[in-house]
Computed example of a mutant assay.
Amino acid sequence: MKLIVAYIQPQRLNAVKQALYSKEITRMSITNALGCGQQGGFHENYRGVDVEVNLRKKVRVEVAINDDYVDKTVEAIIEGARTGKIGDGKIFVYPIEECIRIRTGEKGTDAIGG
């Protein structure tokens, strides 16, 4: 079992969701995030004051999956998120020690689902 966490540009979210759906991956969590990296920041003039904005808006996509879905999940996220420019994002893959479905008490790969 793995947890895939991806930070992507907000405007690429629909493309990422469609790419995941096309590979029959429909379970995910989406969260708004702020971050900075190689993309850097920019200067903005707000009410006459120069302000440096170095935290950019990003979207965090989390997908908990069984091991045999890792490659196609990562491929789908890359397919949907890639523009070829700095700021496309990052993908992290973490091992999951245990998963328990609250409703039924199922554990492990059965709890994550197909």
Rank of each mutant, 00 (worst) to 15 (best):
I8G: 11
K85V: 11
T109D: 14
I65V: 15
Y46N: 06
A76P: 05
V16R: 01
L34R: 15
C36A: 11
S29I: 04
K58C: 06
L55W: 07
A33R: 01
V63I: 14
M1F: 09
A76I: 06
T73K: 06
A111W: 01
L55V: 01
K2G: 10
C36T: 15
I8R: 10
H43N: 15
L3C: 08
I102C: 05
Q39S: 11
I86F: 09
K58E: 11
V61Y: 06
K58N: 12
A111Q: 00
I65T: 09
K2R: 15
K57T: 13
P95M: 00
H43W: 08
V74S: 03
R60G: 08
A33S: 10
S29M: 05
M28E: 05
C36S: 15
G37T: 00
T26E: 12
L3K: 14
E98A: 14
A15K: 12
Q11H: 15
P95Q: 00
V53K: 13
R56N: 15
A6I: 06
A6D: 09
R56T: 09
E75L: 13
E98H: 08
Y46P: 00
K72S: 13
Q9Y: 07
K72R: 15
R101M: 03
A19C: 03
Y94L: 15
G87R: 04
E106P: 06
A19R: 01
V61A: 01
K57L: 13
K85T: 11
G114L: 06
A19G: 04
Y94M: 14
D71V: 09
E97Y: 06
E106I: 01
E52R: 09
G105F: 01
Q11D: 15
K17N: 10
V49L: 12
V59L: 06
R47V: 05
A64P: 07
K85P: 03
I86W: 06
A76N: 05
H43F: 12
P10G: 11
A81D: 04
C99L: 03
I30W: 00
I25D: 04
G87V: 00
E98W: 03
A81R: 04
I8K: 10
R101S: 07
V74L: 10
E62P: 01
G41P: 03
I91N: 07
L34V: 06
E79D: 13
I4K: 04
M28S: 05
A76T: 08
K2I: 12
M1W: 07
A33C: 03
E97R: 10
Q39C: 04
K107F: 02
Q38N: 12
G113H: 00
D71L: 07
A33N: 02
K17H: 10
E79K: 13
K107E: 11
K72H: 10
I102G: 06
C99K: 07
L34Q: 15
A6C: 08
E98Q: 12
S22F: 01
R101G: 02
G84F: 02
R82K: 15
K90P: 04
F42H: 15
I112E: 00
V93A: 04
I100D: 05
K57V: 05
R56W: 03
R82N: 13
I25R: 02
E44F: 04
V53W: 00
E62M: 10
A33G: 06
A81W: 01
A81I: 01
G84H: 02
Y7I: 09
K85W: 07
A6R: 08
